[in-house]
Nucleic acid binder design. Structure first.
Lengths: 242, 242
DNA sequence: CGATATGTTGATGTAATTCAACCGCAGTGG
DNA sequence: CCACTGCGGTTGAATTACATCAACATATCG
């Protein structure tokens, strides 16, 4: 029913780079598709732990994740870090750099990954010719804004267990959109990285996961997660709202 | 030296609507400027407390704030709210709606305000013709992403007083960019609204402000703020980083 | 003017952090 | 081969920063 999730990496999200299907599901005819495909080059492989770009790097391209898993994080002066997102196959990464022609966060591969590079000025050129591509680019940018604002809501008003439940349900949904099982998947990140994303210490993440497990809502073994009760997870968001 | 800050509203940021100067400081010749100006209609006046748009409203236009002050906020199912931003004259509001053709937050006037409406599809049309306008629109979208991610850092890793100091310094900088005093201005929002933005209860906001005042870094009387020691405020960000 | 909003401050409670001990595992090297 | 080490993860105990509850003060507005 679902594609199996392989141990070490997600399947390619796309054919050439398949921006049509997932990254850019845009109404284009075959000639236009070809023009879009011609923009895009296979950037190559990033081993687990390697850096796609660093804060301060010159911005020149967006990246479409073909296979694998990334995290993005910002660091401030005094060394604090905040994971700003986890990106999986089929998602676009690098939007932060457009503003100042320099990236403002680091992008790190959490497993061996393949990305396609989309030179941004060429994408702008083409999107001036193809209104539906233009519109789609705007949606991608706006979607990131909406997504970030929902994380702000999470960070500003949810308790630890609610944050975890929200996080797991979000991952579940995205795996489902990628064609994988929504109830059984591998976490690609450490407890520390989850905590950085959710504004919690790693011990708190561990405790909250243990508690969800004790409540029979999930089953965890190392990094493999099984969601036992989707509605229970949903229900625990909003409990004891403040 | 600085324009005085009037009691009830900021001065217009612009001439017709002055997207050139602040909202869209774009390199355009006079013909192109006129074409841009022709897109933009004076939307009119919003009294304090009135709603520019609500979550769920159909998205059709961006808004450039000509005078006044807004907040944007999202509400989730169980009634929690999160202020996602405070916008002042010269800033663009409504980017959240592009993604799904519907707004995802409420925009509320915190004082009597004037906005100009920029029909989005027409802006897209024109930006296909004018590369520098296109580039600028992309920067505006990306800037919002970067801004939101910095709020994520604040919400995820800063203590109450650091959040307040960061917030006040940000306001200060934006007032300075608008030509007003960076050290003396009126807060347009309640303690509750500040707290909603910073992920704190209003009592905590009040206490943190009192403490900054006791430390001689600021002087507050009701909503009028004076920053007594800019560097001291900066220094208190990062103290006892966790 | 009184009524309602907003803001301050104190006392108390609590969720999350901090600190620490411990386990299992993978990689390393004697 | 097995001790040694480092890393990721779990769990317990003590601490703390913030929330909550409550009383009161001040400002705003019809």
């Amino acid at each position: 029913m679902h594609k199996p999730v392989p141990g070490n990496s997600l399947k390619p999200a796309c054919s050439t780079c398949n921006l049509r299907k997932l990254c850019l599901p845009v109404n284009l005819n075959s000639v236009e598709i070809t023009r879009l495909d011609n923009l895009i080059s296979r950037k190559g492989v990033y081993r687990q732990g390697s850096i796609l770009y660093r804060s301060g790097d010159k911005f020149q391209a967006l990246y479409a994740i073909r296979t694998g898993f990334f995290k993005t994080q910002i660091l401030n002066e005094d060394g604090r870090e905040q994971a700003t997102g986890f990106q999986m196959a089929g998602e676009i990464i690098g939007l932060d750099g457009i503003n100042s022609d320099a990236h403002t966060c680091d992008a790190v591969a959490l497993e061996d990954s393949e990305v396609c590079e989309i030179p941004f000025s060429k994408l702008e050129d083409l999107s001036r010719e193809l209104p539906s591509l233009q519109r789609h680019l705007h949606r991608i940018l706006s979607r990131e804004i909406v997504r970030d604002q929902n994380i702000m809501l999470l960070l500003g008003s949810m308790r630890a267990e609610e944050r975890l439940a929200t996080f797991l349900l979000n991952l579940s949904q995205r795996f489902a959109e990628g064609g994988y099982s929504p109830t059984s998947f591998q976490l690609r990140m450490t407890r520390q990285e989850i905590g950085s994303y959710l504004g919690l210490r790693l011990e708190t993440v561990s405790r909250a996961l243990s508690h969800l497990q004790d409540s029979k809502l999930i089953h965890m073994r190392n990094r493999s997660l099984e969601i036992l009760c989707m509605s229970g997870l949903q229900a625990c968001i909003g409990k004891r709202a403040r």
